[in-house]
Each structure stands twice: as C-alpha cells, then as structure tokens.
Design a binder for these strands. Structure first.
Lengths: 212, 212
DNA sequence: CGTGCGATGTATCGGTCCGATACATCGCGG
DNA sequence: CCGCGATGTATCGGACCGATACATCGCACG
C-alpha cells in the first residue's frame, strides 16, 4: 500500500521523505492518520533497491521560478524511474482482493486520476460488493444474535451498519457517474513539464444537497 | 488490542481458539474484518506465558471416549485467571491515546458493559476530540489546498469529512446519554453461573428516526 | 544578545498484526 | 466411497506503527 502511494506521489514531482509524508498525510487524511517514518524510510530504501526510485541530489541547476517555501539543505530527494512507473501501472492493473479493504480501497481511490476508467469501475464495484457483505454480516448479527450481545455492542453494530449503508449509497453514486460516460481517464500522466495546476477530471459526486 | 479483546471475551466463558475467533468476529464485526490466526495463536501463547490465561484441557483422562453429540477432539480450551482479570481492569483504567484511534476505540467500546461509567465517559470524550481534530484537518485541506488536489481525492476527503461529522454527532448522543444518569456500570462481571441471557444495560442511543 | 522551542529532516528498533500456507479430523451428500 | 466444506491448531515472512534518537534552522521572548 505504501509502495503504491509513494510511486503515485512521486509521479507528480520528486520529493524528500518529510515532504512525502506530508503530501501522503494530506492526500490520505480521510482514511489514515499519518504515515509513520518507521514505515516510510524502509519502504523508500526497498523501492530504491528495486530500481523503482532513485536518489536525486538536490541541485539548483535551472533558473526556474522556485517557490521559496522550502529551504534546501542536505535532504535526500527521491525521483521515480521508468521502471517505477511501470510498476505503478502494474499495481493498478492487478487490483486484487486486498484492493477492497478500507485502506487499500482508499489509497487506490486517491489515485483514481491516474487510473483508467475500466479499472476505476472494477475497483468501485469490488469495494461495493465487499461492503455489502460486511453489511449483511452485521444485519445477521443484529437479527439472529442480538440477545447474546449487550446494548453497547449492539449500538456499535448499528453504527457500523449505518456506515455501511451510507458507503454503499456513495459507491452507487460514483459508479453511476463513472458509467455515465464522460471520463477524461488521465489528465496528466506524462513525464513532461513541471507544475500543472488543475484541469478537473470528472466531478465524481456532484450532489451535495441534503443536510439533516 | 487483541490482548484486551481476548481477556474481555474469556471472562464470559472459557473458549478454544476457533471459537474465540468467531466470537471476536461477531463482536467486532463493525470495526474489523476478522482476526487472523497469525495474530491469535501467538497472542494466546503470550497471555499464557504471562499467566493471564490457562489451558483447561477438555478431554477427560479416560483413553476410550465414546463420542457424544458434539465431537471433542484435541481442542485447547483457554480460561482466564485472576491475574488476567486484574490485567483487563488495568487495561481499561489506562485508556491512553491509542484508545482513541479507530480500532482501539471500537474494541474498548465493545466492552463498555464491563467498564465503569467514568471511564466510559472519558473514552467517549477522548474519541470525540480525536475525531474533531481529524475533521478540522479535512476541512483545512478542502479549504486551503483544494486546488492542489484532483477531483477524486477531493471527493474522498468530502466523504471522510461527512463520516467525521456523523461520528461526532453519534458520540455527542452517547455522551449525553451517559451523563444523563442511569448507568448500571456492570451487569455481570462475576465468574459464577453459566449462560445468562440478557438484562439489558442502558440503551445507549435510542433515536432511530430520520431516514433520507 | 542569547537561548530555547517548534518546525524541518533522516533514521532505527521492537513489537503487533495480517495473509498465505500447511495439516488433520469430521459429517454429509452425491 | 469419495470429495468437500466446516472445524481446529499452528507457523512464517512481511507490512506497518510508535517510540526514540539526533541534528539543523529561524524566530520569538526575555
């Protein structure tokens, strides 16, 4: 999972560890607290050993407009390689069962802008199936085994069931939106050109209306 | 976390590994998929080594055993010890920051029937604080860094923010309910007596009305 | 003027937990 | 009678976390 996220992020621009963690936290804030350095640095070394990323010593060579936000020091900047991009594409294409658990799905979803529409659809449907199964399990427990459990445990199940139903509805919306055609597939996947701002892929869920 | 859950479950009745896993899955189904044996068995051995649980061999001494209704074969039944109960109480009393993350909170909540009211309140408020922080983080990202992120990532954040707001409301309800007085604290904590059916502790959240 | 503190930055270690795998028994239906 | 799904115990490698250590920088406060 971390491997996937790192490869995905480094395609946007080269980064050093600290920066990577911050971006990761911002991008995945909805599903994970914060990536631990105890995972990050070993993973970076693993990716480097596999040839998917390289160290790029920070050099001020070009006279580009460089945002002054970051000061340059003895930092280790990582950069994705061609093999790394292949690896990332391969990880997207696989999309096995582990892609549908909470974390796996969240990470994949976060990189949907770099995922082709067919795969997006497949992942969304796989996730929906998985959540539906969890939902059925909870309904079973609440129905059949209710008297064996105390009130707090039952309340926990109800809350979980609620969340499942809500997520299924959310996924249905996304799937419908995905099927309905317009799919830019990939706004920017090339190596070329530095910063790009935004060219808004398809607005996934537009309906932001009902509020209790 | 597993340690806590096992000690909690074994206070209801002795169990063997397989059974333990099933009960665990039923009780924690709302927050975790299923406990892996790769965690369960090593943890059982660790708890045994610490003296918090003991093996209670199920098979009687006689070599020839006529198979009864249920098949009993070389199953290893575990039973909690007095030290184990102390350990469980101690784990409840500690309730550190790790108690407020998703899994930690869920597991603690599942054993609220064995937790005193003051601690329940403390845990609920700690969890609320944590979720509120996550919520603020998501609002920040959606506000300040929105144009740096693609539409899918933003949708993920929105969904996460929604879940946060919902959980805070749920917690508020539970906290209000908890404060409002009636708290049986512990319905059954004793070692004695076999199966008990139910004597319904306080209904934590009663309001089950609004449906969009 | 200095001093300490929070942000930036890299790194390791022990421990928890998961996923895959292996193996053995039992009851039941085809 | 044979396979297959449920029951049951167990191990191994790997992913990830939390605590910890250490070093530099800018700046706010005394």
């Amino acid at each position: 999972m971390l491997e996937f996220a790192i490869l995905g992020l480094l395609q946007e621009s080269p980064m050093h560890g600290y920066e990577l963690r911050k971006e990761l936290t911002a991008k995945l804030g909805a599903i994970r607290a914060a990536i631990s350095y105890g995972s990050l640095y070993p993973t970076l070394r693993r990716l480097q050993a596999a040839g998917w990323i390289t160290e790029a010593a920070e050099t001020p060579a070009t006279a580009e407009e460089v945002p002054a936000l970051t000061s340059r020091r003895g930092r280790v900047v990582y950069k994705i390689t061609a093999e790394g991009k292949e690896r990332f594409a391969q990880l997207i294409a696989q999309a096995g069962p582990e892609t549908y658990d909470d974390t796996g799905f969240g990470v994949h979803f976060a990189f949907f802008a770099r995922t082709d529409q067919a795969t997006r659809l497949r992942i969304l449907e796989g996730r929906r199936r998985k959540i539906e199964e969890r939902r059925e399990g909870l309904r079973d427990v609440l129905g059949r085994a209710a008297e064996r459990l105390d009130a707090y445990t039952l309340e926990l199940q109800r809350h979980g069931l609620d969340a499942c139903e809500r997520e299924v509805r959310w996924l249905e919306e996304l799937i419908a939106n995905e099927r309905s055609g317009r799919a830019p597939t990939v706004p920017n996947i090339g190596t070329a050109g530095g910063r790009r701002e935004d060219n808004s892929p398809p607005p996934p869920g537009e309906t932001r209306n009902e509020r209790p």
